[in-house]
Design a protein around this nucleic acid. Structure first.
Length: 874
RNA sequence: GCCGAUGUGGCGAAAUGGCAGACGCAACGGACUUAAAAUCCGUUGGGCUUAAACGGCCCGUGCCGGUUCGAGUCCGGCCAUCGGCACCA
């Protein structure tokens, strides 16, 4: 038996559904050469001041070595559609891109390979940029910025100096130059200050981290353990803005979920600060009091013991002789615990008695003072009044250590037997609102009233005052790393001083060994010549965190080459202007930055606004979070799962336009959704149908404009398709419902696919509608169309967006649904705007309706004009 | 535990309180082709009825209940999945 083998004609080389490979890079080149998408600034000759501005921004990427993944272009495609659409609608559109290139991953990689992070960064940026260009995004590339560029970070350092040289004036509720501060120690109020604080120290990364960078006791980057350790660090006084950061969310068009996330992160609580005297006479004479914060001052009578955080400074003063050994041991154990251990062990309450007592200012009872790590030094005053009857944690602790429990809030209405105790039956703490009991001053009052009255009483007696507390901590702003912006700060005789603006940028020294020292000393300290500034001054060796550069990049995009100012005033006023509180009109990015970048950037923006450098109090007016794209297996993409989709593969096989359209066609932008390569193919088939609608392949295998395209008027049903599509696509783009916009264009194409003659006006509309989504094929077909049917202007990008006419959407006849008791029984076709009476009559006369109402009494008929008639029987 | 989002065919999804499943994927059938690919046309939620076709009936948007002439959509209660926060006094 002979096996004959034939040459395999259809090899693995897939036939392209349409020749996108012949024109996609061509158009990308044309756009680049023409600087098609460069928006001139006010003051430049080409600037058209008659147009309104639209600033549409992506969260600029961190250029990692892995290159672009399919999640990046999801948001980028959405903003690109908006940018192209807005240009066609006559806006001056600012649509920039840049690189957030300082940060830990590049440095970790550099340490591993020995390659300088600057080189890695340059390579990664080049790769990202070429990948983005392949997708045909209409970025204003002349405005490209890179946070590691000295021309950029010069101004990051300058902004730090503005923050350093200001203080927050509570009287005006805004930042002011430090020179306006009348106190004798300006360093105590600066918005940037140095403090010895317990910080999140990550031994593996050799640096401290912000609270926001620590997830479940581990570093967000790398997942290494983080421990608490007191260190001297630069802090930014973001807490001064806590109130405004909450309040001013109100005017922003952000998803409510993200606003809530920020509000919860800032964590505002209203209550009172209450002072408890220490019971021992000698301590009282020393004037020692324990101050606590409580959101429930109405439960003051129920405070049967107190708890201090293990690190609380008063502990040394109050612990009795016999309790010292136990206290010391407990404190040491607590200090050794990492944050991770502290949360993991949180199930079981622990603590020790100090031997000391305090006086409850309301009941004047002697109550014991304990130490426990369920009280945190970092929140409130680091001490609490424990009300076990009305706080679950306190109750758990009281039960474990057999401390007394007194009920002071009754969930029920006021009872006629005051002072009654239901202690024996108390199972769980009642934490809700109720009525005060066992509390002489406030008995019988509803909790809210009780809070008011007891607060008044405390203030009158000088035993406390109303207070507001925030979970938000000041922002730990220094890092012991090499790859970040150096601080523009000098140290002289143990004091910090700002460098002159004229000395900026402060460029980090060239270092061969940029590894973390592991001791907490920054790597820059190894550059002895650089550190030494003069005989009596040294440079600050810490660097800024990754977030610094991204806190203001959206401002630099307005005026990226300005050498005399961080952003020119005219440029800022124009691009960040408008009638809303926020400057950027649309900001699209992932939800992972909800409490990091988006909070930090708002903070910096407000400082710069207060100091008169900016025209708006908020940076981002409208925020949209794109959903995560999952792997084909429905799981999160990760290297270890091996389900990572590389955009290059999809673009190679189906082209950039299909890739863009698929990213948008998958589902709603904000939704999490799985990738499916078959879906890309489907969208690619749609684009091929568009292609073949207008192009025929001749004998020689070349594509030429189809003879079906003719200068004729569309018929009535075609007009309806055209205008319905204009309306739907327009509305859907405005509401970012790109998936349904594409569906409508598919409907459009399906409707024309088999037409013998196709009006040229119809395909013109289609191409314009399609252009924001699939700009390459639209440009190519528009050009081909222009060869035969010339139109001015010749560029599709210069075409105005089409308008729809309601008139073409109205039909002479409509289908009316006939229901009996809500169930569809028939449909009839009637003239438009038939009267209710007539519709009812026709419904009742209908055979199908009669069949179902036979033998029943007709109660009524609900008529919805041009829609339906529902006949109701009993 | 608390807060938030989401639950609709085999899959991605669509639906101002008014014909559930547009559009696409997959599958199946047909046309074209020597054949295949590509393309074009058609069928495709489940069940019942019918010799078959046409037709018809019933059920169906996580579960239970409510409002309404009418509920995927509004209200109340549950369940599940995902995300965030988590001893925050």
């Amino acid at each position: 038996m002979t096996i004959v083998s034939f040459p395999r004609f259809m090899s693995s080389e897939r036939r392209k559904p349409y020749p996108f490979d012949r024109f996609e890079s061509k158009w990308q080149r044309i756009w680049e050469e023409r600087q098609e998408f460069h928006a001139p600034n006010p003051g430049v000759r080409e600037f058209n001041s008659s147009k309104a501005k639209f600033y549409v921004l992506d969260m600029f990427p961190y250029p990692s070595g892995a290159g672009l993944h399919v999640g990046h272009p999801e948001g980028y495609t959405a903003t690109d559609i908006i940018a192209r659409y807005k240009r066609m609608r006559g806006f001056n559109v600012l649509h920039p891109m840049g690189w957030d290139a300082f940060g830990l991953p590049a440095e970790q990689y550099a340490i591993k390979t020995g390659q300088h992070p600057a080189i890695t960064t340059r390579e990664n940026v080049a790769k990202f940029k070429s990948q983005l260009k392949r997708i045909g995004f209409s970025y204003d590339w002349p405005r490209e910025i890179n946070t590691t560029d000295p021309g950029y970070y010069k101004w990051t350092q300058w902004i730090f100096l503005q923050i350093y040289n200001s203080w927050f004036n509570p009287a005006t509720n805004k930042a002011e130059p430090i020179s306006s501060y009348r106190g004798d120690n300006p360093d105590s109020v600066r918005l940037a200050y140095v403090a010895d604080v317990p910080v999140n120290w990550c031994p593996e990364l050799g640096t401290v981290l912000a609270n926001e960078e620590v997830v479940d006791g581990k570093s967000e980057v790398g997942g290494f353990p983080v421990v608490r350790r007191p260190m001297r660090q630069w802090m930014l006084r973001i807490t001064a803005y806590a109130e405004r950061l909450i309040d001013e969310l109100a005017g922003l068009d952000w998803p409510e979920g993200i606003k809530l996330l920020q509000r919860n992160w800032i964590g505002k609580s209203e209550g009172a600060e209450i002072d408890f005297e220490i019971a021992e006479r000698e301590m009282r004479n020393a004037g020692s009091k324990i101050r606590v914060f409580s959101t429930r001052p109405d439960t003051l009578y129920g405070a049967t013991y107190m708890v201090l955080a293990p690190e609380h400074s008063l502990i040394d003063l109050i612990v009795t002789e016999e309790e010292w050994p136990a206290v010391r041991e407990y404190r040491e154990r607590a200090a050794r615990k990492s944050d991770l251990e502290r949360t993991e062990l949180s199930k079981e309450k622990t603590g020790v008695f100090t031997g000391a007592f305090a006086i409850n200012p309301a009941s004047e009872e002697r109550i014991p003072i304990w130490i426990a790590d369920y009280v945190l030094l970092g929140y409130g005053t680091g001490a609490i009044m424990a009300v076990p009857a009305h706080d679950e944690r306190d109750l758990e602790f009281a039960r474990k250590f057999n401390l007394s429990v007194r009920e002071v809030v009754s969930p029920n209405a006021p009872v006629s037997t005051p002072g009654r105790s239901v202690l024996p039956e108390l199972r769980a703490a009642f934490t809700g609102e109720g009525v005060a009991i066992n509390s002489p001053i406030i008995d019988g009052l509803a909790s809210e009233e009780a809070r008011k009255k007891i607060s008044d009483w405390l203030e009158k007696e000088g035993k406390g005052k109303r207070a507001i507390n925030y979970k938000l901590r000041d922002w730990l702003f220094s890092r012991q790393r090499y790859w970040g912006e150096p601080f523009p700060i000098l140290w002289k005789n143990g004091k910090h001083h700002a460098l002159m603006e004229s000395e900026l940028p402060i460029v980090p020294p060239e270092l061969d060994d940029f590894k973390p020292t592991g001791t907490g000393e920054p790597p820059l300290a190894k550059a002895r010549d650089w550190i030494r500034y003069s005989d009596d001054a040294t440079r600050e060796a810490n660097t800024m965190p990754q977030w610094a550069g991204s806190c203001w990049y959206y401002l630099r995009f307005c005026d990226p080459d300005n050498e005399s100012r961080f952003v020119g005033m005219d440029a800022e006023e124009y691009w960040m202007g408008g009638s809303k509180p926020g400057g950027v009109d649309l900001y699209v990015g992932g939800t992972e930055h909800a409490v990091l970048h988006l909070l930090y950037a708002r903070f910096w923006h407000k400082v710069l606004f207060d100091l008169g450098h900016l025209s708006k109090p908020e940076p981002f007016q409208r925020l949209v979070n794109q959903g995560i794209i999952l792997g084909e297996d429905g799981q999160r993409m990760s290297k270890s799962r091996g389900n990572v989709v590389n955009p290059d593969d999809a673009i190679d096989a189906y082209g950039a336009d299909a890739f863009r359209c698929y990213e948008m066609f998958m589902g709603p932008l904000e939704q999490m959704k799985p990738w499916n390569m078959r879906g890309v193919e489907g969208v690619s088939r749609f684009l091929a149908r568009v292609w073949r609608l207008m192009m025929d392949e001749n004998q020689a295998g070349d594509w030429e404009l189809s003879r079906r395209i003719q200068e004729i008027a569309p018929d009535k049903s075609q007009l309806k398709t055209i205008h319905a599509s204009i309306r739907k696509v327009t509305e859907d783009i405005e509401s970012l419902s790109f998936n349904t916009a594409i569906s409508q264009m598919m409907v459009f194409v399906n409707a024309f696919t088999n037409a013998e003659k196709i009006p040229v006006s119809a395909v013109r509309v289609l191409l314009i509608l399609l252009d924001p989504f699939a700009p390459h094929i639209s440009s190519e077909l528009w050009e081909k169309l222009g060869d035969k049917f010339a139109i001015e202007p010749a560029q599709i990008t210069e075409q105005p967006w089409p308008a729809y006419n309601e008139r073409f959407l109205i039909e002479d006849e409509v289908d009316i649904v006939l229901q009996v008791n809500g169930k569809v029984r028939d449909r009839i076709r009637v003239p438009l705007d038939e009267s209710d009476q007539q519709l009812e009559k026709m419904a009742l006369a209908n055979a199908r309706v009669q069949e179902f109402v036979a033998g029943k009494t007709i109660r009524k008929a609900v008529v919805v004009r041009n829609k339906l008639v529902n006949v109701v029987t009993n």
